[in-house]
Amino acid sequence: TQTTHELTIPNNLIGCIIGRQGANINEIRQMSGAQIKIANPVEGSSGRQVTITGSAASISLAQYLINARLSSE
């Protein structure tokens, strides 16, 4: 079954999640098997909405990979 998880990434950290020309986010997508959508910046908001869709296992793996990127910054 597909589930969806949403999280907010601070604007100053979204770059390390996306990577150069989307390299990091594509790697996270491939490794986790989850669909990951990053919302466009919202004016006045300090973060970007990230939506992860997939199986429970792929979502938790995607979250783990995202958190690993954030903590390495």
Rank of each mutant, 00 (worst) to 15 (best):
residue 54 G to S: 01
residue 65 L to Y: 09
residue 46 S to T: 10
residue 51 T to N: 04
residue 19 G to K: 07
residue 57 A to Y: 07
residue 41 P to F: 13
residue 45 S to Q: 10
residue 50 V to Y: 03
residue 46 S to R: 09
residue 53 T to Y: 08
residue 30 Q to V: 06
residue 64 Y to L: 11
residue 72 S to K: 10
residue 10 P to D: 04
residue 61 L to I: 12
residue 16 C to S: 11
residue 13 L to E: 10
residue 24 N to G: 11
residue 16 C to H: 08
residue 25 I to L: 10
residue 54 G to L: 01
residue 15 G to D: 12
residue 49 Q to V: 13
residue 2 Q to H: 13
residue 3 T to E: 15
residue 8 T to N: 14
residue 51 T to L: 11
residue 11 N to T: 07
residue 16 C to A: 13
residue 1 T to Y: 10
residue 3 T to Q: 14
residue 51 T to E: 09
residue 30 Q to F: 09
residue 52 I to F: 02
residue 53 T to K: 14
residue 24 N to H: 10
residue 44 G to Q: 05
residue 18 I to M: 03
residue 24 N to L: 08
residue 73 E to R: 11
residue 62 A to E: 00
residue 71 S to P: 13
residue 55 S to F: 03
residue 4 T to K: 11
residue 38 I to L: 09
residue 49 Q to P: 05
residue 54 G to M: 00
residue 31 M to E: 13
residue 4 T to V: 09
residue 25 I to G: 03
residue 40 N to S: 12
residue 13 L to V: 04
residue 2 Q to K: 14
residue 55 S to E: 09
residue 4 T to A: 09
residue 26 N to K: 14
residue 35 Q to G: 08
residue 57 A to T: 08
residue 1 T to K: 07
residue 23 A to D: 10
residue 31 M to R: 14
residue 25 I to M: 07
residue 56 A to M: 14
residue 6 E to V: 15
residue 32 S to W: 00
residue 16 C to T: 15
residue 51 T to H: 05
residue 7 L to I: 11
residue 36 I to E: 00
residue 3 T to L: 14
residue 19 G to L: 01
residue 30 Q to S: 13
residue 55 S to P: 09
residue 8 T to K: 08
residue 14 I to D: 01
residue 71 S to D: 11
residue 58 S to H: 00
residue 46 S to M: 08
residue 63 Q to F: 07
residue 8 T to Q: 10
residue 19 G to Q: 03
residue 70 L to Q: 00
residue 4 T to W: 05
residue 51 T to R: 10
residue 30 Q to N: 15
residue 38 I to M: 05
residue 8 T to H: 12
residue 52 I to W: 00
residue 57 A to K: 14
residue 51 T to P: 02
residue 24 N to V: 10
residue 50 V to A: 02
residue 46 S to P: 11
residue 37 K to W: 06
residue 41 P to C: 09
residue 67 N to Q: 05
residue 36 I to F: 03
residue 32 S to Y: 03
residue 23 A to F: 13
residue 10 P to K: 07
residue 23 A to S: 12
residue 72 S to R: 15
residue 55 S to Y: 08
